[in-house]
């Protein structure tokens, strides 16, 4: 029983983490039709930036609780710097090209960003810890479920995932910008003809997507050793999530994250040998049975 609960808790935490990473990917695909491999690098950028900013914060002797602000700031920085630079500097010249070509463009970008990270931060593993061993991961204390102890930081992940998903769903359904976005998703040419500034929408979407990748990286940084190659590892997981749910679908990303999260947690607890295998197995099965994912039928794609 306790193992079952552990699977559930681990699964939900892991799902939340996956959702945070995948939601930006699916948003960008849904609006811009770009399956962005460089999303993994943006995630890594978020993680490395937060190592630097938290390090500065701790070294300045400021109250450790403020390190959470630094995590947030890292994500915003990634979004506001890397997002616009990539969109204006590269992607906008590629719009209208074949989807596969766009994937390859982002793959090239991925290669470039991977080395950029190495150039800035070096190749040694980095950790977020203050001089006294403080880390955002442990600062919040722990909670117990069925005799098992978990860091409260996990609750932050869940909260951020729920808040992000909720905010996006609300923005799409209720705000003017959201409706413009849906119009662009539905038909780019017609939207442009109606006077919607598609270029601006792409710009904003990519910036938000990059920021979400940054959030994923920043929130992950305290829980792992931050190393080069972490982007490569994460991007295939994110692909699995969005492909299972349906590319470009917001509820799809949530469902995909839940499935992958729970499957992996179950595998880790019951049959550790199949941990990675199980994720991609599910991905393949879904692609075979429902090529467009669980959440996208014949109807118009909904973000």
């Amino acid at each position: 029983m306790s193992q079952f609960i552990a699977v559930l808790v681990d699964g939900i935490v892991y799902s939340s983490w996956l959702f945070i990473i995948a939601v930006g990917l699916t948003l960008i695909y849904g609006v811009m039709k770009i399956l962005n491999i460089a999303h993994g690098s943006l995630y890594a950028l978020g993680a490395f930036t937060s190592v630097t900013l938290c390090g500065l914060w701790f070294n300045a002797g400021l109250p450790p609780m403020g390190s959470y602000l630094m995590l947030l700031l890292s994500a915003i920085l990634v979004g506001l710097v890397a997002g616009p630079v990539i969109e204006r500097g590269l992607l906008r010249f590629m719009y209208g090209k074949d989807e596969v070509v766009l994937v390859l463009v982002t793959y090239a970008l991925f290669l470039i960003l991977e080395d950029l990270i190495k150039l800035i931060w070096g190749v040694d593993p980095l950790f977020i810890t203050g001089p006294g061993g403080e880390s955002p991961y442990s600062l919040l204390g722990n909670f117990e479920v069925a005799g098992l102890t978990y860091p409260n930081y996990n609750l932050v992940l869940i909260a951020v995932a729920v808040a992000t998903g909720g905010a996006l769903a609300w923005a799409l359904a209720r705000t003017r910008s959201g409706k413009l976005l849906l119009a662009v998703i539905h038909d780019r040419e017609v939207s442009a003809a109606l006077g919607i500034n598609v270029g601006r929408i792409y710009f904003v979407t990519f910036t938000i997507g990059a920021m979400l990748a940054g959030v994923g990286g920043a929130l992950t940084a305290p829980t792992v050793s931050v190393v080069t190659g972490m982007g490569a590892e994460v991007i295939v997981l994110a692909f699995a999530v969005v492909v299972i749910g349906g590319l470009g679908s917001l509820p799809g990303a949530a469902l995909g994250a839940l499935i992958v999260g729970l499957v992996r947690a179950a595998a880790v607890h019951y049959l550790p040998e199949v941990e990675l295998f199980s994720i991609y197995f599910v991905m393949a099965v879904v692609l075979i049975l429902r090529p467009k994912g669980l959440f996208s039928g014949a109807e118009v794609r909904k973000i």
Partner: peptide, 14 residues
Amino acid sequence: DIFFAMLSLAFSMI
């Protein structure tokens, strides 16, 4: 297109 790319990716990752 990308569906071929993704399914072949899934197989290799399996």
